[in-house]
Amino acid sequence: MDAILTYVVNVISLGGTYALLALGLAVVFSVLRLINFAHGELMTLAGYTLLAGIVLGVPFWAAVIAAVVVGGIAAVIMETTAFRPVRNANPATLLMTSFAVAMLLQVIFQNFISARGQAVPVPSMFTGSIPIGNAQISIIQAISIVASLASLIVLKLFFDRSRWGWAIRAAADDFETVRLMGYRASRLIAVAFLISGLLAGIAGVLWVMQRGSVDPLMGLKPVLAAFVVVVIGGLGSLPGAVIGGYILAGIEIALQTWLPESFIPYRDALTFVLVVVVLSLFPNGLFGKRIAEKV
């Protein structure tokens, strides 16, 4: 029973972070048809901002807010400087641009901060654990669960209740129609990037709090995981991104927990085999719609 409880806690904690990351990718994809591979670097930037805040002696909560805000602002700057000039180019150009932005930011972090990782000394009140029945949950995991669920609820309210939320959801279905209804494309895309950046900022803070350090390549692995999540959920589907996050976390944690020792070197490969199985059953992802190709 304890094993099941621990498993559920681990899945909710990791899945929440994956869901935030994947939603960030999905929001931008819904308006621009772009998988932004520089999304991970927004996380890294948030991590460095958190570190800078702690080093400068800013209260921890203020450093966290600064990290999230910097993530959002950086995403908007990224959109206006890198993606806007090539917005009407074909998807491959946009994709290449996102790789270029990611590499450029990595090199900037390496040359202007350090090629080495930097420890992020999170206040000691966040070290420790809380008992739940016979199991225990670490404080950072608990924060991760609460923060990711709260963010998802706020985002759900935004998409359900606000004009811009409706517009982004509608743009995921038909961007041109949303424009015809009076929404300026530039503003809609900028709002999508802002949300994406804020989500990357929150995920970045949670990631760094769990890992204890930030390094120039930190964003690489999570963005790949988020990409897989978005594909599982269905490209362009916002609920799919959330559910996909928990599914990927569920698969990963189950394999970590119950896979026999001799199969452990194949764990990542098995994760992707299961992803392939999901995609062979649902070729457009769990919640994706078949996208008709223009001829």
Partner: peptide, 27 residues
């Protein structure tokens, strides 16, 4: 972070890969 967060206080032995300011700055 994970093991100390889970309340495990068993001594840890590491190798030369952790000889960096990052380790020292972990508190």
């Amino acid at each position: 972070k994970s093991i100390r967060g889970a309340g495990i206080n068993i001594p840890v032995l590491g190798t030369d890969g952790i000889d960096s300011p990052t380790t020292l700055a972990l508190g």
